[in-house]
Design a binder for these strands. Structure first.
Lengths: 237, 237
DNA sequence: CAGAATCATTTCACAATGCGAACAATTTAT
DNA sequence: ATAAATTGTTCGCATTGTGAAATGATTCTG
């Protein structure tokens, strides 16, 4: 539950909220969750912080209706400086403006009153998504098979190999666990989101075979996807 | 034919009618049509229900001439508490008073004797009208796709996505059942008000495809609208 | 140690299901 | 009235899941 971090790096949140009670509560909760926070109570001081500290920030949390200026301005300013997610806190009556907020580049918004848990899960979701998009194209190499995760393409000797959706998913699971032995059940669960109760155990075997046919030079003497008898399958190393 | 629902949410009707035969018949028919009902036989008990349950109600159906007090009062009470539609059931001789009822804020009235089908279609029509105007602006988030129910707009990465009416309706159904697997038939029924007898089963598939083309990053490896083979489709979680 | 029995894995062939291109019909806008 | 967009259908192909039989490895047994 407690991990305001992505890939181990602690996330730094700029929080701008004029109601001091709400602000304090929020700050406390965020810090409990291992986020680090910078708190401002008005638009003016927020701007100053933005000027100085924008490099260190990872996400902004703005009250939409601040006493000395709308949160829109702040949002615009942020997006000019650095491409990080912005979430708006809004009162119910502000709702009309939400679309406008999103046009401005906001990434999510949440209406007061809100449950703190909900907010935090939204924060995490936005951060996750963001990292996905900014992610550079990862290339995974498995014994000469190259996987381009961003485009979802797979190459062997510079020739693209066409995989079906499921074959690709299976391959990705192996790619993300290079060198580990994966049991049939582990694989079944990961592919079908369900324990092996619903899906035939043999189905997996068939997919392994199909993958091997497409990837291996000699499918009968597999080099890439190796079977570990009695335990499961293994890829790499 | 059978769907007392708006965008998938079941509608809850408060029915007040002193003639127990009529009341029972009505209740049965409404429930057949997937409405849920609360039945009262007099004004007093109706008031109690209103006090307690008004948040959950979506529409009221009042007999105009109740034994212990006119339906007018009830109507006034409803409108004070929550802005939901009221339909009056009247005897022929009451007609004089209908104008007054409408002044009171009633949304429609129907004279006894009436055909049940007619009543139900009026109910649906009123609900449709109402929802168009009074719906609160909900923002639903599906893996980064944001739906603004009030404006009927859909955004992806802060860019508006143009959906056709049907595509939008389909998406809304998914949005209202996040995490649930919806069978083809369930979806067909909700969209076309009819079980799969009249509409080609594959039509749905085509819409799914069109939606995915607009929403997904990689339509062939869908992340948002997932296929659950043999069961249907699923969105979210 | 050979051969039998047992178990895990692989292969094959098939049926069910889902997908998508292209076309036809309908509705809506101009 | 014409064009454009939306909606619905048809049909062939691809994917997916499964059962049955074949293969291969490992253990048991005399």
């Amino acid at each position: 539950m407690k991990n305001g971090s992505q890939d181990g790096k602690q996330m730094n949140i700029l929080l701008v909220e004029d109601d001091k009670t709400i602000a304090a509560g929020l700050e406390y909760s965020l810090q409990q969750d291992q986020f680090s926070t910078i708190l401002c109570h008005d638009s003016a001081s927020a701007k100053k912080v933005l000027e100085k500290e924008y490099q260190t920030l990872d996400l902004c949390l703005f009250d939409l209706s601040l006493p000395d200026g709308s949160g829109y301005e702040l949002c615009k300013m942020v997006k000019q400086k650095k491409d990080i997610p912005v979430i708006f806190l809004t009162a119910l009556d502000d709702e009309v403006n939400v679309v406008m907020g999103l046009d401005m580049g906001a990434d999510d918004y949440i209406t007061k009153p809100f449950r703190i848990r909900e907010l935090i899960s939204r924060i995490k979701s936005v951060l996750r998504r963001y990292h996905k998009y900014t992610q550079t194209n990862t290339v995974i190499d498995l014994n000469g098979i190259k996987i381009f995760t961003l485009e979802g393409k797979v190459f062997k000797n510079n020739e693209e190999i066409m995989l079906t959706a499921l074959e690709y998913r299976l391959l990705l699971i192996f790619a993300n666990h290079k060198g580990q032995v994966l049991s049939r059940n582990q694989l079944l669960e990961q592919i079908w989101d369900v324990a092996g109760d619903f899906v035939n155990d043999n189905t997996l075997t068939v997919y392994i075979k199909r993958l091997r046919e497409k990837l291996e030079d000699h499918p009968q003497q597999p080099v890439i996807i190796k079977t570990v008898r009695g335990l499961g399958y293994k890829v790499g190393d």
